[in-house]
Nucleic acid binder design. Structure first.
Lengths: 210, 210
DNA sequence: ATTTACTTACTGACTGGTCAGTAAGTAAAT
DNA sequence: ATTTACTTACTGACCAGTCAGTAAGTAAAT
C-alpha cells in the first residue's frame, strides 16, 4: 500500500478505515469481525490499523461519533428553517427517504442496536447526543404548532416518537429484509402515506373536529 | 442436574435451553455467546446441550421458529375477532403494549436483526412466516374498512407498516435504551397517542373531510 | 549526482487465550 | 448388566494485539 505521508493523506486513510470497519461491523457484528478483515477491506495490513486506532473498541467508538453527529445537525437545521409547522412536516416527507438512502445513519443504528450491551457508555452517548436531540427538535416544532393552535393538542414527545418510528422501521427493513430477500420497500409511498395521516390527524382545519 | 427421564421432562429441558439461549444471544449476540454459558444458565453442562441440539446454529433456528409463530397466530386471531375495524384498532391500542411487555417477541426481533446476515435463510423464513403474516392481517383489516367506507382510502399495505412501526420502535427502545440508560418509555401513552392520530386520520366521520 | 545516515509507514509471523464441538468416562435408573 | 442422561477433559481452529523487521522516503555530506 502507498504510504500516507501528509496529514491530509493520513486523515483520508483514517476515514477509509472507519468506513471499512462500519461495513464489517454492520455485516458481521462486533465480535465476529476480525481486525485482519477490516484492514484488508481498507487496503492495509492489520498492523497498520494499530497505528491509527488503539483497539477494536476505539474503532467502534470512532464510527458512532464521526458519522452520526453531522447527520443530526443537518436535521436540526432543517427543522428550524421553516416558519410553519405544516411546511416542516411536508419537508420531512421528502427529506426522510433521502436520509435513509444516502446517509450511513441506518448502518450506524443497526451496529449500535446489535452491540449495545457490549458498549453501554456508547449507547448512552448516542442517545443523548443523537436520538434525544433529534426527538427534541421534532417535539419542539410540534409543541410550537400546538401552542399557536396550528395543530391538535397531543403529547408532543410521543408524537415526535411516532413521527420517527417509520424511519427506524424503514432503516431496519431496507437493511435487513430487503437485503436478504431481494425486495425493495417503496420509501416515497410510505412517507407520503404517513404525511397524509399526520396532516389529517394533526391539523385543526375546517372547524369540524372538537 | 436432575436427569430428565420422561418425554415431558425432556421437552421442558429443551424449552429451558431455548430460553437460556435467547437470553444469551439477546445480550451478547450470536458470535460472542458461548455454548458453555448457555448451558450454565440452563443449569446443565455444555456437553448436554449437544444431546438436545446439533450445533449453535440449530439452537438459533429453534429460537426463531418456536417463539415467534405462536405470537403471530395470537395476533391474527385477535384481528379477525371483531366485526368493526374501529373496534379492532381500539383493541390494538391495549394489546400492543401487552405484547411488547409480556412476549419474547422483542428479544427475538433484536436477535434476528443483529445476526441477520449470518443466517439469511432464517431471516427469509421469519419474514414470510411472521412479519408478512402480521402485516397482511392488519392490511386486510384496513382494506375491509376502506372498501365499506368506514375508513379513508389509503394504501393499506403502507398504512399497516405505519401501524407496526411504533411497535418495532418501542421494542428497540425498551430493550436498548431503557435498559442501558435506566429510563422507562410510557408505552400506554405512546399507543394512546397513536390511536388518537389513527382515529382522526382514518375515519370518515362528521362528513367534513373530502 | 551519489552515497550514507536517519526517520517512519507499514507488514506479517507469533503469542496467549478463547471456544465449538467431541469423546471418554460417570452414575442413575431399569 | 445394560441403557441412558449427563459431565468433563480434550482438541484443533481462530483471533486480538504485539513486535521485530522491511522498505519507502528524506536530507545531509561528499
Amino acid at each position: 500500500m502507498k504510504r500516507a505521508q501528509t496529514e491530509t493523506q493520513k486523515s483520508e486513510r483514517e476515514a477509509q478505515i472507519i468506513q471499512s470497519a462500519l461495513e464489517q461491523f454492520f455485516q458481521n457484528g462486533f465480535s465476529a469481525t476480525t481486525m485482519e478483515s477490516i484492514g484488508r477491506h481498507a487496503g492495509i495490513s492489520k498492523g497498520t490499523l494499530y497505528l491509527y486506532f488503539d483497539s477494536k473498541e476505539s474503532l467502534f467508538i470512532a464510527i458512532i461519533k464521526t458519522i452520526a453527529i453531522p447527520q443530526i445537525e443537518h436535521l436540526e437545521a432543517l427543522l428550524i428553517q421553516k416558519p410553519s409547522v405544516l411546511e416542516t412536516l411536508a419537508l420531512l416527507q421528502t427529506e426522510l427517504p433521502r436520509l435513509l438512502r444516502v446517509s450511513q445513519l441506518p448502518k450506524v443504528a443497526k451496529v449500535l442496536i446489535s452491540d449495545a450491551f457490549i458498549f453501554p457508555e456508547v449507547v448512552r452517548h448516542y442517545r443523548t447526543h443523537v436520538v434525544d436531540r433529534g426527538l427534541s427538535a421534532v417535539a419542539n416544532c410540534l409543541r410550537r404548532g400546538m401552542d399557536n393552535r396550528e395543530l391538535v393538542p397531543l403529547d408532543p414527545e410521543m408524537t415526535a416518537r411516532l413521527v420517527f418510528a417509520p424511519v427506524l422501521m424503514s432503516a431496519i427493513w431496507t437493511l435487513v429484509f430487503d437485503r436478504t430477500c431481494n425486495t425493495q420497500l417503496n420509501l416515497e409511498l410510505l412517507f407520503e402515506t404517513q404525511h397524509k395521516i399526520l396532516i389529517r390527524a394533526l391539523t385543526l382545519d375546517e372547524a369540524s373536529h372538537v
